[in-house]
Structure formats: structure tokens, C-alpha cells
Amino acid sequence: MTQDDAVAVAIRGLHKRFGAKAAVDGIDLDVPSGSFYGLVGPNGAGKTTTLNMVTGLLRPDAGQVLIHGVDMWRDPLAGKALVGVLSDGVRLFDRLTGEQLVEYAGLLSGMDRPTAVERTHDLLNLLDLASAGGTLVVDYSAGMTKKIALAAAMVHAPRVLVLDEPFESVDPVSAANIRDILHGYVRGGGTVIVSSHVMDLVERMCDHVAVITDGHVVVAGTVDEVRAGSTLEDRFVELVGGRRVGEGPEWLRHS
């Protein structure tokens, strides 16, 4: 196995500033191929900014991102072809139906229409959206919107899936179905990078994790290595700080 095959995403010296604030301040990270990799950190830690640079949505001030050996910012077309993206808060073409949106994503990736149509039907069935395929995305619930965005990210069979808060607003049954689909994708040789605030979910779902705070990686490795005999949540709080110990002011206590 070559280095490009062993490492799905290699991040080297990634920097991004917004005015005086360094949102990402020298991140180095290797994501192994075939891993389910969790990216966790407090609000404002730089997770979303990092993922946007990894996926070609935001140009870094400095640094390099390699997707299976392809430099995302030297050859963005080739790099983006290897990646499927579900970005938190990015608007969809919501005046299309769900079926049209996923087909359109397939066509944009360069596949022919019959293949795009076939894959769209497969994904809508897989995500329990077949009955809503003819409904405009603007009329979808938050959970349905998340699922149709995932379908659009997967339609071109990318080698790497990058998912920013994929389970936010998704009901427990749909979340379980999505987890099963993602684990099947990883077993088939794909790589998933997921950003989430839910430590229990990351601990149960991921095999690797990196903790980011103040724009840099505090610790990275397998989940067992990072949690170091504790729970991932307790280890996370220990690493990033900020926990307030106490029961709150007297006026909040009624007994």
C-alpha cells in the first residue's frame, strides 16, 4: 500500500485568519484510509473552517491539503471529485425537488443522466426519502433536508465523505439509519470525517478522533488513545477547559 492509499487526507500547516483572529493556526493531521474520523472541539475552535479548506470551499492562507495524494488547492477539480461534502449551514438549491437535487449533483460531477437517475433512486430508497422525491426541498423538514444533502454528497461515490454536524435536527430513527449507511460505506473502503458536538455519538461511531481548540490540534489518535481510560466527554472537557463547577445561584434552587 502506498502512502497515498494509506492516508486519505493529509493536512499540513493549515492556516486561516479572519482579520486579527487566527481561526486555524497551523493544523497538521493525517486521516487514515478506511477510518471513521471524528473532529471535535468547542464552538469557535476552527472545525468548520478547517473542513471548508479541506473540501475546497475556502482557500487557506497557508498550508496544504492532500486527498489521496491529490493537492486540493493545486488541482481543485481532481481533489473535489474525490470528496463528498455535507456542510453545516450551506444553502441547497431548495426550489428543486429532492430527486432533481440529487440528480443535478450527479450531473455536476460528470456522470451521464441514466447513471445519475439510477443512483438517485437507490439513495432515496436507502435514506427513506422515496415518497418525498417529488417534493420541493424547501418544503422538507430539517431532518429530511439533512438526509437529501447527504444523498447529494454521496451520489458520485466519493472516496472521502466530509460531514459537518450530520445528525443535527435528525430524529433518532433516521440517525440510526444514517449511521448504518456510513458504516457500510467505510467497510466498503471509504473514509468518513465527521464534525460533531455530541461526544457520546462520536465515541460510539468513530474509530479515530482529533480534538481541536483555538485553531490547533490538541490531541489526535484512535478513540481509545485520546480518551485515555476516561470517557471521551470527560477527556474533551479536561483538554479544552472552561468547565464551571457549581450548582448556580441561590435563586435558581427551589428546594
Rank of each mutant, 00 (worst) to 15 (best):
A105Y: 13
G63R: 03
G143W: 03
E168D: 14
T231D: 10
T2I: 07
D4R: 09
L252G: 09
K80W: 11
L201E: 15
V70Q: 12
K16V: 11
I181P: 00
S33C: 13
V218P: 04
D122I: 04
E203P: 09
I212A: 05
L29D: 11
G106C: 02
G229V: 07
L92C: 06
A176H: 04
A8N: 06
V31T: 04
D171W: 01
G110F: 01
Y37T: 00
A210E: 08
F18E: 10
M154Q: 00
M199P: 06
Y104L: 14
L39C: 02
A142K: 15
L136I: 07
A81Q: 14
A157I: 03
M1D: 11
V138N: 13
G229D: 07
E99K: 12
G98V: 00
L82S: 13
V31Y: 04
G143S: 09
M144D: 05
H68I: 08
N125W: 05
A151H: 02
A8M: 04
H121S: 12
L82M: 14
S196D: 13
G190Q: 06
K21H: 15
H156A: 06
S109E: 02
A132K: 07
E165Y: 03
A157S: 13
T55V: 12
G221L: 01
C206G: 04
V237L: 15
R59C: 01
E118W: 01
M1E: 12
L161S: 02
R253Q: 13
R235V: 06
D139R: 13
L252F: 13
P114M: 09
A45G: 12
P166T: 03
M72K: 10
G34L: 00
H254M: 12
G98H: 05
T222N: 08
D112V: 11
G38A: 10
D5R: 14
A151E: 00
F18L: 11
M205R: 00
C206T: 06
V117Q: 14
L39K: 02
S169F: 05
G229C: 04
H208S: 01
M199C: 06
L77R: 14
T213F: 10
L82K: 15
A228G: 03
A149F: 03
G248M: 12
I178G: 00
T50V: 09
G221R: 05
E118M: 04
S196F: 00
A10D: 14
A132M: 08
G79T: 05
G188N: 07
H121D: 13
V202W: 08
V31H: 05
S109N: 08
D122E: 15
P158E: 01
A175H: 02
E225R: 09
G13C: 08
I11D: 13
A116W: 05
E168R: 13
G134F: 02
K80P: 07
G19V: 06
G134Y: 03
S35D: 08
D122V: 11
G134P: 06
L57M: 13
T49Y: 00
G41S: 10
D224A: 15
D122F: 08
V240S: 10
D71H: 11
S230H: 15
A228K: 08
D75S: 15
G84R: 10
G110N: 01
V85L: 15
M154D: 00
G110A: 03
G190L: 06
V170W: 08
V218I: 14
H68E: 12
G89K: 11
T213H: 15
Y104D: 04
L57Q: 14
I11Y: 05
